[in-house]
Design a protein around this nucleic acid. Structure first.
Length: 801
RNA sequence: GGGCUUGUAGCUCAGGUGGUUAGAGCGCUACACUGAUAAUGUAGAGGUCCCUGGUUCGAGUCCAGGCAGGCCCA
């Protein structure tokens, strides 16, 4: 061993005739570390010292590691080693993320099946077994890279998210949230195919051919403003003429579900005095200034309103007033389809029909004011929720609240004259008759008569279609389980301000803004390979139980057996428990009133798994309470910036909800590793850099030094192998040459530096004192940079130049 | 469409709170050394500080608006 030679040779400094082989140096050092358990000792020898807590964000081993993983892990390693050198004990438990959609999709691709085939062509049991095998396929490669790049982390005792203990911890945490009232069943707006009767994933929506050009009837609707204190400023004091807000929609069938109008806060709007083109009645309308030209002509500006007769092509118009969107907020308006004409009353109606701000409002098309129907649009739903605008829901036959369209794509019976009409042609009925009207057309005709339509026209636009049925997709509320993160929003924001983000802008900007606009965390995934939701419910949904441990589940099974809902307890004799589907689906429990309870079929979002790692890695809260508390929160975590809404968020959210604490005190969000031209690396483009080949050729030291010294980790790195060559020559080469120079002359003079036999300070030459002073200054500077979590400045300060 | 981010020499990057002639390393050119030699030393050439406006006595730096690239989200 070269290193041992160096350490043992007390007589002289080795002189190298050959230039260094950096790959070989890496291999030698690794072997020496391994042989002498250096990493283990770096932790065990500091027993009793203060700990520096580090969390390893679990990678997924279902793909080969790339060069960007070397980047992320270099950052992690640097700070853990720095803290170790400062004398702290830094345990580093590895982990594996094993659940989730990417693994499922990979398995489906390999088996040549789709989601619909699961449970038919292949049993859930077999399918999940395949996922389990697939997910760790590249583990050996990952371990190899970890070792070769010199990343110190404990790979012998990692946490694995599919293990029963890990899932059990997740269940225990879910139950804690449940008991605090943070878990509830609600709905979100998701793409839904009425003809297929199923929700569509974003993945399915991104299939080629789903977006098609269609010709739809569009309506610019007039919403009549209620004259009160909020709207008084719009009315001229002495003018009682009605005032309307204009909003455009390509889906007129959603207008009866309208409960709000959204404006852009800073968009300029105008009040225009004109006439309704269908009724000829004088009106005053509000729309965005930028879109006036879309509805009014130059001719109309000069036309006299006294000469106007109903039916005239040219609408005379005058701008009466100008204001910002913010001025309109809070104004109330009358419902378009009211009770008086047979439309249903709904809950919380007094809070509906208001103008609010929507961050998605533009003046690209329409009127610059967006009609909001919270049951049929994701943006609508979100902005309505944030502003306390209710959704228009009606009771179905069983008394359950549902939207005005049923799951087959038809208006519910309560919809007055339109009750039972198909929203789109989902049943394939005959549309050829001369008198045939679509629902959109019928609604537009009625609105023209009511004087609530300002403009009706056909419009061609692209709209997503179901890839299986070719029918247009409906954005529709679907049941989901949620964690009520909005309940602790203020606390999330407050505690986030105590976290040291590197770079700071990610914490205040990307993450901070995300928290400001927080919506509840949608936990539900209609999938197979993941942590099942531990909630059992009676058929009518009135009774439910959240299971927090295997022990509790067994007890509940016993109760169910006694109540003859289950024939026997499959775990009565200490059989191994697997908490995955389909096993948990075969467990039926009994409610306090004696009803059978069925498991809610959803899985939970995999991000819950990784966000739960501070607890679940120790099987806490079921055991290891002391260990957990000693290792919470983390002093430091690091991951790619793409994790901001992933791991960084779920860690934070769970810590705040469960422990009222941050999960991490310092966090570094590193950027991407791009190719040397600044393009994203991908296997398809063939510009991906192989980390193994790179490390073998250039050695781990030069590779890591290059990555850290070249650009700050949070900036994107344009990865160029020539840059590593430069680092080798410029930094490591110079270091090597400096040493060789020293060794040559030290050996000639028989000079020997030792720890103890030092020349006293006052006998040192001025030059020697200068260089020592320089060294001390450098140490101080480098430490300052490390303490500020800025490894690039630390590296550049140490650079020989 | 929104949030964040980047744009300075051929390349990779520095340039608190505005202030002379805008810097470093690599690369390039020339010279020196030839017992640090797949090195080393010295010197040099090389810039529309992305664009347009504004604030100011003065803008790479501050403000506004664009353009281009990147990430995340709709």
């Amino acid at each position: 061993m070269r290193r041992l030679e160096i350490l043992n040779n007390k007589m002289s400094y080795p002189e190298y005739k050959q230039p260094l082989n950096y790959g070989q140096v890496g291999t030698d050092i690794l072997a020496w570390w391994k042989q002498n358990s250096i990493f283990e000792k770096s932790v065990s020898s500091r027993e009793g010292q203060p700990t520096f807590v580090f969390y390893e964000g679990p990678p997924s081993a279902n793909g080969a590691p790339g060069i960007h993983h070397v980047m992320a892990r270099t950052v992690k390693d640097i700070f853990c080693r720095y803290q170790t050198l400062l004398g702290k004990q830094v345990p580093r438990k590895g982990g594996w993320d094993t659940h989730g959609l990417p693994i499922e999709l990979q398995v489906e691709k390999e088996l040549g099946i789709t989601k619909e085939d699961i449970g038919k062509k292949i049993s859930i049991e077999e399918y999940n077994q395949r996922c389990r095998e697939t997910v760790m396929r590249f583990k050996a490669q990952w371990d190899d890279l970890t070792e070769k790049m010199g990343y110190w982390v404990d790979l012998d005792d990692p946490y694995i998210t599919f293990e029963p203990e890990y899932i059990e911890s997740c269940w225990a945490l879910l139950k804690k949230l449940y008991d605090k009232g943070f878990l509830y069943k609600g709905y979100t707006i998701q793409p839904y195919s009425p003809a297929a009767g199923t929700g569509l994933s974003s993945h399915e929506l991104n299939q080629p051919g789903t977006y098609r050009d269609v010709m739809d009837t569009t309506v610019v609707a007039q919403f009549k403003v209620v004259r009160d204190a909020a709207s008084e400023k719009l009315f001229a004091a002495d003018d009682a003429a009605p005032l309307h807000i204009l909003a455009w929609t390509t889906t007129p069938w959603t207008l009866p579900a309208n409960t709000g109008l959204a404006v852009g806060k800073n968009i300029p709007y105008v009040l225009v005095r004109t006439f309704n083109p269908y009724t000829g009645a004088p009106v005053r309308v509000v729309l965005a200034e930028a879109l006036v030209g879309k509805y009014f002509t130059e001719k109309g500006k000069e036309a006299s309103s006294e000469d106007f007769k109903p039916g005239d092509k040219v609408l005379p118009w005058r701008i009466e007033n100008t204001f910002k969107g913010a001025d309109l907020v809070g104004i109330k308006y009358e419902r378009l389809f009211g009770h008086a004409t047979g439309f249903p009353v709904f809950e919380n109606e007094e809070n509906a029909f208001r103008v609010i701000v929507g961050d998605f409002v533009t003046t690209e098309d329409g009127t610059g004011i967006v009609h909001i129907s919270p049951t049929f649009g994701a943006d609508d739903f979100r902005v309505a929720q944030q502003n306390g605008i209710p959704a228009l829901m009606v009771a179905d036959d069983e008394g359950k609240l549902s939207p005005i369209v049923d799951r087959t794509g038809r208006y519910v019976a309560q919809m007055g004259e339109f009750g039972g009409r198909w929203v789109k042609n989902y049943d394939g009925h005959d549309q050829s008759g001369a008198d045939y009207k679509t629902l959109d057309e019928s609604i537009a005709i009625r609105m023209k008569g009511d004087g609530t339509a300002f403009k009706v026209e056909k419009y061609e636009h692209t709209y997503p279609h179901c890839w299986r049925t070719d029918k247009p997709v409906l954005y529709y509320p679907l049941d989901s389980w949620f964690i009520k993160t909005t309940a602790v929003k203020d606390r999330l924001i407050e505690l986030n301000k105590t976290i040291n983000w590197q770079p700071a802008s990610t914490g205040t900007g990307r993450f901070g803004n995300w928290l400001e606009n927080l919506v509840d965390w949608n936990l539900s995934r209609s999938r197979y390979w993941g942590t099942p939701l531990p909630i059992w419910r009676t058929q009518d949904g009135t009774e439910e139980i959240c299971i927090g441990s295997i022990e509790q589940m067994k007890q509940e099974i016993d109760k169910a057996v006694t109540a003859e809902i289950m024939t026997h307890n499959p775990y009565a004799n200490g059989e191994k428990v697997d908490l995955h589907r389909p096993y948990v689906d075969d467990i039926f429990l009994v409610s306090p009133s004696g009803q059978p309870m069925y498991r809610e079929p959803d899985l939970i979002d995999v991000w819950f798994d990784s966000g739960a790692m501070p607890y679940a890695q120790w099987h806490y809260p079921l055991e290891n309470s002391e260990k957990f508390h000693k290792n919470f929160p983390a002093d430091f975590i690091a991951e790619g910036v793409d994790q901001t809404r992933g791991w960084f968020f779920t860690l934070h959210a769970l810590a705040v909800m469960l422990e009222d604490s941050v999960a991490y005190k310092n966090v570094m969000a590193n950027g991407l590793v791009l190719d040397k031209n600044g393009n994203k690396m991908s296997k398809r483009l063939g510009n991906a850099v192989d980390p193994f080949a790179t490390i073998a050729q250039y050695g781990p030291d030069a590779t890591r030094w290059y990555m850290i010294a070249n650009a700050q980790p949070w900036d994107n790195l344009k990865f160029d192998l020539n840059g590593i060559t430069e680092v080798q020559r410029r930094f490591f080469g110079t270091l090597f040459n400096t040493y060789s120079f020293y060794a040559l002359y030290a050996n000639l003079d028989g000079f020997q530096a030792t720890e103890t036999a030092r020349v006293p300070h006052h006998e040192l030459s001025e030059l020697d004192r200068w260089i020592l002073s320089k060294l001390q200054s450098l140490i101080k500077e480098v430490r300052g940079h490390y303490d500020a979590y800025d490894p690039t400045k630390a590296a550049r300060a140490s650079r020989i130049s």
